[in-house]
Design a protein around this nucleic acid. Structure first.
Lengths: 140, 140
DNA sequence: TATTGTTATACTCTATAACTATA
DNA sequence: TATAGTTATAGAGTATAACAATA
């Protein structure tokens, strides 16, 4: 059917375009982060750390292996952006963002908001639509 | 003003969430691509190569250095997914996707469309909104 | 002289596997 | 025995700098 073919073509276009946009977001983040002298992986971790988070959960949210988080946490701690807090289960360590980390995260998000290709190109209506879409996507 | 503060907070939320969603798209692509036995960088290049593209342009679209494209093109050629075509300016080489490359790209985009977190979670209205947003973002 | 692509090299990012300490 | 984090190591991904060919 022509309708199905059209939808298939649109699906392929969406799929390719999502990859392209994600690519641009990634490149944009790399540029934005330069003046902050912060490696991109640390910046991404900061974005996730809204509240104290077990290291294992952070790995899942970042889509990487738990062993990788150890190095990330070490670097974040050295920079004073995060501290390791023991959990009630004493095997668990939570990463808690420090005031310095929180301040830096805000500066980075502000830079993204003002410079990132996504927001720079959207008017108010489109912005509202983007918020709704992102909310949908974050649902568990 | 409270209104500005609310908008600032929303901007920060958008900025963080965009990073998170891009992260998920990336992780999703990595999973999707496994059964095709294709490294992620090659898959991303395939997504971009709609028509014959100078290697330098591909570098720009992927947000990487031109020297890196040489290796990508080598691997794509070895797999028969792409050929190097000389341009009229004889310094330039265009990468042209082969029928095999095109077929593989369609299979990958179909897998993305059916499995990617983005599309799986959207109903028809949200899907239409997503298309409009992506079109806006692709404008030059 | 400026630009395209290539080569060689080194660095960054991330995974795998074996280990420890708690549970 | 199973789970959270760590360590050491290897591999993938990507940049930098010097180069060759063409403009």
């Amino acid at each position: 059917m022509a309708e199905n073919e059209a939808r298939l073509a649109e699906s392929r276009w969406i799929a390719r375009t999502i990859i392209l946009v994600a690519e641009r977001v990634k490149a944009d983040l790399a540029h934005i982060v330069v003046p902050f002298d912060l490696p991109v992986p640390l910046a991404r971790a900061l974005m996730v750390l809204a509240e104290p988070t077990p290291m294992r959960d952070l790995a899942e949210q970042l889509g990487c292996e738990p062993s990788y988080i150890t190095g990330l946490a070490d670097q974040l701690e050295q920079r004073g952006l995060v501290i390791r807090v023991p959990g009630q289960d004493r095997r668990v360590k939570l990463l808690e963002i420090t005031p310095e980390g929180s301040a830096l995260r805000d500066r980075i998000t502000d830079a993204i908001a003002s410079r990132a290709i996504i927001e720079r190109r959207l008017d108010d209506d489109e912005r509202a639509g983007l918020v709704r879409l992102l909310e949908r996507l974050l649902e568990p």
